[in-house]
Amino acid sequence: MRLTAIPERCSGCTACRLACALANYGRVNPALAALTIRGRFPAPGTYEIALCDQCGACAEACPVDAIAEEDGVYRVDEDACIACFECVEACPHGVMFAHPTLDAPIKCTLCEACVEICPRDALALVDA
């Protein structure tokens, strides 16, 4: 399975980002989210959703093989991670992040919290 977006349904509320941070870090802080919503205003008045499609570019970029795939999900091994953040640079969708309070990069775990909460059904899980 992988995440997909239907941006024309999005209203930019970003509840998905806060749900992501809560589900993965247990913190009220959307800066820890692994997806982004960008409103394109004043024109053309649309939203862009960037999310992880488990493409694996991060794993390829990791110099210490701290990111590996399991059941279709690339996960960061925080013990092995050396916090070089080359994966953040390499992510083609711009959805891996560093945060000053974390020793390892933020990455989507395909936990589905964003899909569950989206009141607009603008996020979905589809077959990979």
Binding site: E8, S11, G12, C13, T14, A15, L18, G45, T46, P119
Partner: peptide, 19 residues
């Protein structure tokens, strides 16, 4: 209308953005 435009964490966006 082009899009619904919601405030932070709002499930019922009253904002209607258009041309």
């Amino acid at each position: 209308k082009i899009t619904d435009k919601g405030c932070y964490c709002c499930p019922t966006p009253c904002g209607k953005y258009g041309l």
